[in-house]
Computed example of a mutant assay.
Amino acid sequence: MTAHGLSSRGQDATLERLRADRQLEETLHNEKTAMRCADSARALLHHGAEQRLR
Rank of each mutant, 00 (worst) to 15 (best):
M1W: 01
T2M: 00
T2S: 15
A3G: 00
A3D: 13
H4M: 15
H4D: 15
G5H: 03
G5S: 12
G5T: 10
G5L: 05
S7P: 01
S8R: 02
S8G: 05
R9S: 10
G10Y: 06
G10S: 07
Q11W: 12
D12M: 05
D12L: 03
A13Y: 11
A13M: 03
A13S: 04
T14G: 00
T14N: 04
E16P: 06
E16K: 05
R17W: 05
R17Y: 00
L18K: 00
L18Q: 04
R19M: 00
A20C: 10
D21H: 01
R22K: 14
Q23V: 05
Q23F: 00
T27R: 08
L28R: 02
H29I: 03
N30F: 10
E31G: 04
E31D: 06
T33G: 10
M35C: 11
R36Y: 06
R36H: 12
R36D: 12
C37Q: 14
C37V: 09
A38W: 04
S40Y: 12
A41N: 08
R42F: 14
R42W: 14
A43D: 14
A43R: 09
A43E: 13
L44C: 10
L45T: 02
H47V: 09
E50M: 14
Q51V: 13
R52D: 13
R52V: 11
L53P: 01
R54W: 06
